[in-house]
């Protein structure tokens, strides 16, 4: 793998178990910074489990167990002295279905900065909310309705709102778990354009079930199958010249 960008995450022998069943098995992966990395594969291949390794959201699932070593910027994020709460302040996440808090648009975005004490004054908080909404491409649509309840937005707007919400705490990394699966094609196109913009600032890791989407927006793609990382390469190479026969079968639509 030819790399000009620094490595953000490096995982070694990462395995995830849910109770007795194994979701991810001995994955070694290096994810570059300021880049879009797509995780693809058939349902149940472990791509969401891998994504949740990076912000330790697997810890939330009661019977999940993660083994192996994961370093972010060289620091072992599973070390006993690392607080997952602080890790998650640096690694934002956007879920498959947007889940805005049943509060106003403004409160949704302001929640994270308030949690972490990022804004001392109201003016600073206002600024942070505006900047986050701008980065998520939502400002122009909601600037006059900041006090309206967030669940009243369209699904596409909600998804950009939760993106703005995670941008507000100024993370290094944004994890996206099939962010476009509940969006219509126009909203999806907007989101993809947004990802393209955001990757100049953030390390983005995106799980997607759409190979076309992975090909369009990602710089690197990882193909997972039955809990194993089959192939990880630059997107162009993986899609045009896959090294593994299973990758080829998947991207040509023979299974999955």
């Amino acid at each position: 793998m030819v790399e000009d960008k620094p490595i953000k995450f490096s995982g070694r022998c990462v395995s995830v178990h849910y109770g007795a069943s194994r979701a991810l098995h001995n994955v070694d992966i290096d994810i570059p910074d300021r880049n879009v990395t797509a995780l693809i594969g058939p349902s149940g291949c472990g791509k969401s489990s891998l994504l949740r390794v990076f912000n330790r959201m697997n810890d939330v699932i009661s019977n999940a167990r993660v083994t192996g070593e994961v370093r972010m910027d060289g620091i072992d994020i599973y070390a006993p002295d690392v607080d997952p709460v602080l890790l998650r302040a640096r690694v934002g996440m956007v879920f498959q279905k947007p889940a805005p808090f049943p509060r106003s648009v403004y409160e949704n975005v302001a929640y994270g900065p308030r949690l972490h004490g990022l804004a001392r004054t109201k003016a600073r908080l206002d600024m942070l909310v505006e900047r986050s909404l701008r980065r998520a491409g939502l400002w122009d649509e909601v600037k006059d309705r900041l006090s309206m309840p967030a669940p009243g937005l369209s699904v596409g707007q909600q998804q950009r709102l939760v993106l703005a919400r995670s941008l507000a705490i100024d993370p290094d990394v944004i994890l996206m778990d099939e962010p476009a699966s509940s969006l219509d094609p126009i909203a999806t196109a907007r989101l993809e354009a947004l990802i393209e913009e955001l990757k100049t600032r953030y390390c983005i890791i995106i799980v997607t079930h759409s190979m076309a989407q992975a090909a369009r927006i990602s710089d690197h793609t990882a193909f997972l199958h039955k809990g194993e990382l089959i192939e990880f390469d630059q997107t162009e190479r993986l899609f045009t010249n896959p090294a593994d026969i299973r990758t080829q079968d998947y991207i040509t639509g023979r299974f999955g």
Binding site: R88, F95, A99, Y111, G112, R165, S166
Partner: peptide, 8 residues
């Protein structure tokens, strides 16, 4: 989950 992912 959303709140947790925001570092709550």
């Amino acid at each position: 989950d959303s709140a947790l992912s925001l570092g709550a």
